[in-house]
């Protein structure tokens, strides 16, 4: 049994994007390498255009990579063609609870259909199985008879998670599962993911645009920008000691719930470049306060910035990752 449940090896996913009248190829994910260990909750964070959703879809087979391989439990996966067994082992939770459930069917029917097609559970036990899974996501079994439109966003999302757990998958890919929910409901779902990992041992690949959410939930985090991984490490280490200027900019941009927070609004400069016309060298250099000539000439590789104190693997794609002064950030007041 491999320690790594999922490996992305130098994968690139390319699309044709229409700009004006012409079509140009863009690499939504560009030579991405990362690994997810069995039983961990791995967070992938980025803003729009970062490529995080693209990676999620690649993993589950909704996209294909033009180069590189996706390896699941030691087995190299073919682009898009997935066996039934594989589909059982890898499930996805989508972002929008209002469109991820079929509006015309009751919840029970949607769940039993999956059991039927996969022939995973004998007919006589299907009802009990659905109720068991419902209990795992803290939903009352009476909701099985409901249709999606009769439920709130939070309930629908729990149903979506239940659907993903039906076949006891090894990997759950969650594509921004809480972004569309009210904050008071969001917390419950985040806690649910944590509980599912502890109770069921399921590995979770969690995509988010909100670093704060990831901090509460994930063991390790990777930050993406314009199709590339710019930093990756154990959560506590990455947040305490971010070594890529973009990660720092992200952390600084997040508004804090502190009383006099308006006295220190920090915002990075400029706009992200278009994926069709990326700057030479480092993609972040047009907005980076530390950029030098070298940044325009050479694209920085992911270098090891593991601190000798913690020994937890930490990588950042910046020429100056090891040389940047210590991050002071906004938590200094605490």
């Amino acid at each position: 049994m491999n320690e790594n449940l999922l490996d992305l090896n130098d994968v690139t996913v390319s699309f044709m994007a229409r700009r004006g009248g012409t079509k140009t190829p863009i690499n939504a994910a560009d030579h991405v390498t990362l690994s997810v260990r069995r039983g961990e909750i791995f967070g992938l964070v980025g803003e729009s255009g970062s490529g995080k959703s693209t990676l999620a879809r690649l993993i589950v087979g909704l996209n294909s990579a033009v180069s590189g391989t996706v390896v699941f439990d030691g087995e190299v996966l073919a682009n898009k063609k997935r066996s039934r067994t594989l589909r059982r082992q890898m499930q996805m939770v989508f972002q929008d609870p209002y469109s991820s459930l079929d509006p015309s069917m009751t919840v029970r029917r949607q769940l039993t259909e999956i059991l039927k097609v996969h022939d995973a559970v004998p007919v006589a036990q299907r009802k009990a199985h659905c109720e068991k899974v419902f209990a795992q996501v803290e939903l009352s079994p009476s909701l099985l008879a409901a249709r999606p439109r009769q439920m709130s966003g939070g309930q629908r999302q729990r149903v979506a998670i239940a659907r993903a757990l039906l076949l006891s998958p090894e990997l759950l890919v969650a594509d921004e599962p809480v972004s569309a929910l009210d904050v008071s409901i969001q917390a419950g779902i985040i806690q649910l993911f944590a509980d599912l990992r502890s109770r069921l041992g399921v590995t979770i690949f969690f995509i988010a645009h909100d670093l704060a959410v990831v901090r509460h939930l994930c063991d390790r985090v990777a930050v993406m920008y314009m199709g590339k991984i710019v930093e990756e490490g154990v959560t506590s280490e990455l947040f305490a000691n971010p070594r890529h200027p973009y990660t720092r900019a992200l952390l600084d941009s997040i508004p804090r719930l502190q009383p006099d927070a308006h006295e220190e609004v920090v915002a990075p400069e400029g706009e992200p470049p278009s994926l069709a016309r990326l700057p030479s060298g480092c993609r972040f250099r047009s907005r980076c306060p530390f950029a030098t000539e070298k940044c325009a000439l050479e694209e920085p590789p992911l270098i090891d910035v593991t601190s000798s104190a913690t020994h937890s693997l930490h990588r950042a794609a910046c020429h100056y990752a090891n040389d940047l002064e210590a991050y002071v950030g906004r938590s200094s007041s605490v």
């Binding site: 589950v60 087979g61 909704l62 997935r82 039934r84 589909r87 499930q91 996805m92 989508f94 972002q95 929008d96 469109s99 991820s100 459930l101 079929d102 509006p103 259909e113 999956i114 097609v117 996969h118 979506a160 659907r163």
Partner: peptide, 17 residues
């Protein structure tokens, strides 16, 4: 393009279904 159709595709449902 609705997510519930994507979910069905991901489950490996046949096109007919």
């Amino acid at each position: 393009n609705q997510e519930y159709v994507l979910a069905a595709q991901l489950q490996g449902f046949s096109t007919l279904r």
